[in-house]
Nucleic acid binder design. Structure first.
Lengths: 110, 110
DNA sequence: TTGATTTATCGTAAAGTTGCGATTAAGGTT
DNA sequence: AACCTTAATCGCAACTTTACGATAAATCAA
């Protein structure tokens, strides 16, 4: 059926999966890296930076906006994008929560 | 065309995207959480734990194995799974690298 | 107002993902 | 050997994602 059974997982699991999905494309990783470096930029900068057509970049921006990771504000003809600091902190905490988990068993654990 | 233009992005961007993709489904997050808690478990435990059919769980395990996050060793009729400690450390570093980036601008950055 | 610039959205094609029943393969058990 | 158990794989249906050209909408400039 091709539909994830969201309702059978915890909110935390779904949330983490949603954020991971936002990062699950090199173009979106590149967008976030660029935004973290420049702090702010207009859409056109990203179109120039990425090896993708304008429509495709716009679509990736839409997805990042959909999970709340970035915000865009209209500035005349352009749109200025930046990372949402609060959301970024939230993402950080969620990922650190999982990533910080220790692993006891080494090489031949099984 | 539905094909990610991998070759036009950096190795780091592609790698991060690949790991994020592995985490981009609640079932796979659940599998990792369970493995981090128990350190080790057999496939059947996961099938019992998750709200999914055996074939589906097996498929998710395959994806996690494909990126190297988990390892499975045959133990008689069962297969014992555990997290690959080295890979886990690598994933941690890659994600921390991005997540640690500071954000200067607040509320109305644009 | 006309025209240029910038970004979002639409439509579409190709490919990938999710899920499951059925089957296969491999190891145990009797 | 015949049978059970466990897990992987196959085949399929439904849905989602990626990508781009074309078009629309909105602002600015002359």
């Amino acid at each position: 059926m091709g539909v994830t059974k969201t309702q059978n997982f915890t909110a935390e699991q779904n949330q983490m999966a949603a954020y991971a999905k936002a990062l699950a494309h090199p173009a979106r990783v590149a967008i976030l890296q660029y935004l973290l470096k420049k702090q702010t930029c207009i859409c056109g900068d990203l179109v120039g930076e990425l090896p993708l057509a304008q429509a495709t970049v716009s679509q990736h921006l839409k997805e990042l906006k959909a999970v709340g990771l970035i915000r865009g504000t209209v500035e005349g003809t352009s749109v200025c994008y930046c990372i949402d600091a609060q959301k970024w902190e939230e993402v950080r905490e969620i990922f650190l929560g999982l990533l910080a988990s220790p692993i006891q068993c080494q090489d031949n654990c099984c």
